[in-house]
Amino acid sequence: MEVRTIKVFTTVDNINLHTQVVDMSMTYGQQFGPTYLDGADVTKIKPHNSHEGKTFYVLPNDDTLRVEAFEYYHTTDPSFLGRYMSALNHTKKWKYPQVNGLTSIKWADNNCYLATALLTLQQIELKFNPPALQDAYYRARAGEAANFCALILAYCNKTVGELGDVRETMSYLFQHANLDSCKRVLNVVCKTCGQQQTTLKGVEAVMYMGTLSYEQFKKGVQIPCTCGKQATKYLVQQESPFVMMSAPPAQYELKHGTFTCASEYTGNYQCGHYKHITSKETLYCIDGALLTKSSEYKGPITDVFYKENSYTTTIK
């Protein structure tokens, strides 16, 4: 009895394709271990004539594949690729409408935090270190965002349907971005203890939790000093293409032309909904596939993004 075979390709990165001759009487799992086709788990399936010449994702289970996976995804987590594939199996079914010149995501599976993050990423200057993220990001900007969303979920250790947080998501993504040249110098002034300067680099240099107003941050924000008295913390120097200011959701007025974009969060910790506000020729609110415009805006804002380049204080 002759062994019926077909020729397929296996890959971990969709760049390096490895030619395989597979036995049609055995499952993919018996031949390769966990195997995925377009995100779908085909591990328990036997090869079919229609699979001839198709590319299958496999887990990096030998040295060659491990090197290829690390170079593309910059992670050695053995569960990463499987999590990416199972997320992709959902995100490829989502709709990605162009809204006001940006790629958004039609609401499904509690994905409003991903839509808000995706919209924000198209408006701030950011370059990702893992080629996987950078490639998928370019495709997302062009309207094909399924891979990018699935990668975000995998890097953030999230599953489809789980509630997510924009600030946490951005923080994970910033860790995989090139923020080497970003720098922030802060000064804390206390009447009792004097003053202390701190220099922050990388992710810490672009994120701040405690106030939404970048102007206020430049002037000074009140913080408790270690001595128990009130101290003032203010920005001395900022070198970065953008800054992200966050605070627990509270009524906040966004003035046209003073910011790049913002995240609105309605609801409580267990259950809520994100919308995205962007400042173009007027203010726009993007909620999944829905767009509304207004000249002014007041609502429960939790993150505001500002364009920056270089700032030095005039406070002496």
Rank of each mutant, 00 (worst) to 15 (best):
E162T: 03
C182A: 09
Y137K: 03
K93L: 11
Q134N: 10
P241M: 00
G53Q: 11
K191V: 15
E71S: 07
D287L: 00
A262C: 01
G228L: 03
C261R: 00
K293M: 12
A142N: 12
S86L: 12
C227Q: 02
N147G: 10
Q197W: 06
P97L: 12
S25M: 11
A145Q: 03
S50Y: 11
P241E: 07
K7N: 11
Y96T: 05
Q237C: 11
H74F: 06
F174D: 04
G143I: 03
Y113E: 02
A145K: 05
E296H: 15
T199D: 05
S50F: 10
N187E: 14
G299K: 01
T55P: 07
S181G: 11
L283E: 02
C149H: 03
R66Y: 09
A247Y: 00
L37R: 14
P249V: 12
V8T: 08
L212D: 05
H18I: 06
G202N: 05
Y73T: 05
Q30C: 15
G299L: 00
P60T: 07
G220E: 04
F217M: 13
T312S: 12
D23S: 12
K92T: 11
Y72K: 08
P47N: 06
Y306N: 01
A231L: 01
C149T: 09
T198Q: 14
Y311D: 07
Y265L: 01
D287G: 01
L88V: 07
Q98D: 09
Y208W: 09
L153I: 08
G299V: 02
G143V: 02
S50K: 12
D41M: 10
G33T: 04
K46M: 15
A117K: 03
Y113V: 02
K201T: 14
G194D: 03
Y252H: 12
Y72M: 09
Y284T: 12
K183S: 10
E125Y: 06
F305M: 00
A87Y: 06
S213C: 08
E215V: 03
C156I: 08
A146Q: 10
D77E: 12
V206P: 01
G33Y: 07
E162I: 02
P78G: 08
L212H: 05
G33E: 04
F32S: 07
M24F: 11
D62I: 06
A146T: 02
N16Y: 10
E281V: 02
A177Q: 00
Y274C: 02
D23V: 13
T292L: 09
T75F: 01
Q196N: 12
Q195M: 15
F32C: 12
A146E: 08
Q31N: 13
Q31F: 13
F259V: 02
P34D: 13
S213F: 00
L81N: 03
L291G: 09
C193K: 07
K106N: 10
Y137E: 05
T120Y: 03
T278L: 09
Q134Y: 06
P130L: 04
A142C: 15
K158W: 04
K255W: 06
T232S: 06
K307R: 13
S213P: 02
C190Q: 01
I6D: 06
S104N: 07
L235S: 00
C193T: 02
F32Q: 09
C182L: 04
F305N: 00
L59F: 10
Q31S: 14
M209I: 14
H273C: 04
T226A: 14
H273I: 04
W94P: 05
V185M: 06
A262M: 01
S295Q: 15
P248L: 15
V206G: 00
S50P: 10
K183E: 07
Q134M: 09
S104V: 05
S104L: 07
E168F: 03
D38A: 10
L119T: 00
L133P: 03
L126W: 03
E2R: 11
V189A: 10
E52N: 12
N178Y: 07
Y72A: 12
L291C: 11
G53L: 13
H74C: 07
T198H: 14
D63L: 07
T260D: 00
G202F: 01
H273F: 00
V203S: 10
H256D: 06
Y252F: 12
G267F: 07
A250T: 14
L118E: 01
F32V: 10
E204W: 06
E253I: 08
T10Y: 12
Y306A: 01
R167V: 03
K46L: 14
Q196T: 13
T198C: 14
L17E: 09
S79L: 13
A140D: 04
K93P: 06
E215Y: 03
K218N: 02
N147Q: 14
H90N: 08
I301L: 07
K316Y: 15
Y265F: 15
Q98H: 08
I6F: 12
V221G: 00
Q31M: 12
L81K: 04
I301N: 00
N89V: 14
L290P: 00
T169G: 04
S79P: 00
G202P: 01
E281Y: 00
D13P: 06
Y73P: 05
Y269A: 15
N157Y: 08
F148T: 05
Q216H: 12
D287M: 03
G220H: 01
H48D: 14
Y84R: 04
C271K: 09
D109L: 05
A108P: 00
T76V: 14
P249I: 02
T198M: 13
K92W: 03
S279M: 06
T198I: 15
S181Q: 14
E308L: 09
V243L: 09
H48I: 14
T5L: 12
Q123P: 04
T55V: 12
A136M: 08
C285I: 13
P131Q: 03
N129Y: 07
C182W: 06
L102I: 08
E162H: 06
Y269K: 14
K158N: 03
L102P: 05
I277Q: 03
K44T: 13
A132P: 05
G288R: 03
L254H: 00
T232V: 14
I315H: 15
A115D: 03
Q216I: 07
N309K: 12
L133I: 04
K127W: 06
S294Q: 14
K316T: 08
V3N: 14
G228A: 00
M170V: 06
T19A: 13
T266Y: 07
N111S: 01
G228V: 01
I152N: 06
L254N: 01
R139L: 11
L37H: 13
Y306W: 01
K46S: 13
H51E: 12
E125R: 07
C190K: 01
Q222H: 11
I124K: 04
G82W: 13
N110G: 02
L290G: 12
R66A: 13
R4F: 10
F56G: 06
S50M: 14
E264N: 01
L283S: 00
Y265S: 00
C149F: 05
Q230A: 12
P130Y: 01
I124M: 04
Y172F: 09
V22T: 09
K46W: 14
A146S: 13
T5G: 11
T266S: 12
P248E: 08
T312W: 10
L153D: 03
T10S: 09
Q230S: 12
P34F: 10
F32W: 08
R139D: 10
K127Y: 08
N178G: 07
K307L: 12
H276M: 08
T260L: 15
V185C: 02
V22C: 14
K229M: 12
L118H: 05
T312V: 12
T43Y: 09
K191A: 14
L235Y: 00
A177T: 10
L88F: 11
S79Y: 08
R4V: 13
K106W: 06
V21N: 14
S294I: 15
E264D: 05
P248I: 04
V3P: 14
G220V: 01
Y265D: 03
V243T: 01
M245I: 03
C227P: 01
G299F: 01
T278V: 13
A132W: 05
A87E: 08
M26R: 14
T226D: 10
D135E: 13
G210F: 00
I45W: 13
N187S: 12
A231S: 05
N49H: 15
S181Y: 12
T313E: 11
F148W: 04
K298Y: 15
K275M: 07
L37N: 12
P97A: 09
M207F: 08
T76P: 13
Q30K: 12
C193S: 03
D62E: 09
D63N: 09
V236I: 12
T43C: 14
Y28S: 07
I15G: 09
T27I: 12
N110W: 03
C225P: 00
